[in-house]
Amino acid sequence: MTQAELLSPKGMLVKELAQEIRTLQTAQRPQGLYVSSGSEPMDRCLPWGGYAAGSLLELTCSKKPRTAGWGGLSLALRIAKPWLENGKYLVIVDSHRRLCAPSLVAMNIPLERLIVIRTQNATDWVWGLDQVLRSPAVGALISPVTELGDRSARRLQLAVEQGGGVGIFLRDQGSAKRNPSWAEVQWLVQSVTTRPSSQTPILMERWFDLELLRAPGLQTTRRVRLGIDAQGEWKHCDERKASKSTEHLAAQLALATPRRPNVAAS
């Protein structure tokens, strides 16, 4: 829709109707409660400077990975962390029994407030997620998603609105396009292979290109490059550039080391 169309009576009506639909859809949600992701560039992309309490979020990867390793779980854990600070619980769906405890501890995830659930079929999965999202004790839920029907997706959205936490779904782009989604925010995640810098050891920080595909009021696609460092904290592109430039500046300003006399030769 062009600017002129938006300002026309028809456009205004569409806008009003969209607003009404949105109000109806999120009537049950705790109003005005938004939690920062902890990363300023990511928050800047989001309409309210954070994720809304009682909403669903999807992290998608571009192609269906045969073996996962695209970093979605690490990103989800980092996004979920601020939701656990008030003593709420984190629930992870791990049907394949793959979760590795040392890495969670290294990312400062409180294991005493972690509940891992395993489901054996789609019915149990939807039921389990519904119960988890509906509970006020749960701050964040992380679950992989393969197929999700329209009614189930809506059921989960209503549940998370009641619970007031956040549900983070990990899925591939194909599944996200094929199936309807009631997620408020959808990111496309691409893991980036960066050249190792002199300051950080090789493979000790990981960078991602995130493309915001869906958010309320989103007009154009927004992109951000974010990293997670060895302490499990966010790292931003600016920081990386700043650290590099500092290094270069320091190198320029440093006093030249006097050449040592060649004792052996004398």
Partner: peptide, 13 residues
């Protein structure tokens, strides 16, 4: 906080 860095062990085994 863990003595090991975040990326020293995989999240899934």
């Amino acid at each position: 906080p863990g003595t090991q860095a975040a990326w020293s062990r995989p999240t899934q085994l």
